[in-house]
């Protein structure tokens, strides 16, 4: 019993890293442009299928798909940005409809190109079990988790210390003031979308190596990212990480002790509980900023 719990907790934490990457991409685009990109999960999905494509066609390890995924998802993000940027009136609302539609288009394009089958890596190296006492992980899960931690660190450094990162924070915090400081907000929004796309690329490949993907996964990921964002607020990377781990744990425990059919539902229940009992998010009003 305790072993099952420990195993579920461990798996939950590991998938939480990837969830955090997905949520951070969503938060980044939201911070800079004030729009919720409902196609963000589909961008992650696109990257996962690039990993599948490379692995199934060449037999190479899925991580060799990183350049291809960065290019494909980068271009998709950029087109998405151009489309959203064309909305002049009621951008908050209209962008929801637009990005939702783009998400559906991407899901169906993937369905058309890759069929509805469930896909995951066939790499023996990544699927090897590594044991830590009584709990196990696939090597792919560990690599994905470490990759997620590293990318969060890089993102944190970029936002904190690079000029573009600071400009992203400036535009997120006060667009008008930032413009008067000479910052071109369109440029910063483009950069945010591209960085969000890069995070989605890594998240998608990581997901493919540690879990299963199918065309409907994209939408489910957007919902997860949304839940995490509401749990954590969009203010801090550690907050998003904790929210993501919490979601991962909830899902893993549900799968272990109830049924994998309830996995998505468990996230929604967690979401509703937090909204009901902690309307300011897990970390109170202070973390919910931007």
């Amino acid at each position: 019993m305790t072993e099952l719990v420990l195993q579920a907790l461990f798996s939950g934490v590991l998938i939480g890293g990837v969830y955090a990457l997905v949520a951070l991409g969503l938060a980044l685009a939201f911070g800079a442009m004030r729009i919720i990109n409902l196609a963000h999960g589909e961008l992650v999905l696109l990257a996962a299928y690039m990993a599948y494509l490379v692995e199934s066609r060449t037999g190479l390890d899925p991580y060799f798909a990183i350049p291809l995924a960065l290019i494909v998802v980068g271009v998709a993000s950029w087109i998405l940005f151009l489309l959203v940027d064309r909305i002049k009136d009621h951008r908050e609302l209209n962008s929801l409809i637009l990005t939702f539609a783009i998400g559906i288009i991407l899901t169906n394009a993937i369905l058309l190109l890759f069929a509805s089958d469930v896909r995951t890596t066939s790499s023996a190296f990544l699927q090897d079990a590594v044991s830590f006492g009584d709990v196990y992980a696939m090597r792919g899960e560990l690599i994905a988790f470490v990759l997620a931690l590293v990318l969060m660190g890089v993102l944190w450094w970029w936002l904190k210390s690079s000029w573009y990162g600071r400009a992203v924070r400036a535009v997120s915090s006060n667009r008008g003031a930032a413009q008067l400081m000479g910052i071109n907000p369109t440029r910063i929004e483009t950069v945010s979308f591209l960085v969000a796309g890069a995070l989605a690329s890594f998240a998608g490949i990581a997901l493919y190596t540690m879990s299963v993907v199918q065309p409907a996964t994209g939408h489910a990921l957007t919902v997860k990212a949304f839940i995490i964002t509401v749990l954590a607020g969009v203010g801090s990377i550690p907050g998003v990480f904790l929210g993501a781990v919490l979601l991962g744990l909830t899902e893993a425990l549900t799968v272990t002790f109830a049924s994998s059919a309830l996995q998505e539902l468990a996230g929604m229940v967690l979401f509703l509980l937090v909204l009901f009992f902690m309307p300011n998010g897990l970390f109170g009003a202070r973390a919910r900023r931007g």
Binding site: A167, S172, S173, G176, M181, R289
Partner: peptide
């Protein structure tokens, strides 16, 4: 006043200088 919050006072000025004056 319209400060850029979540940036320190010094960062507010640095960002203004880099993007507004084109130098650091």
């Amino acid at each position: 006043p319209q400060p850029m919050h979540h940036l320190s006072v010094r960062e507010n000025l640095a960002v203004a200088q880099v993007f507004g004056a084109g130098r650091y």
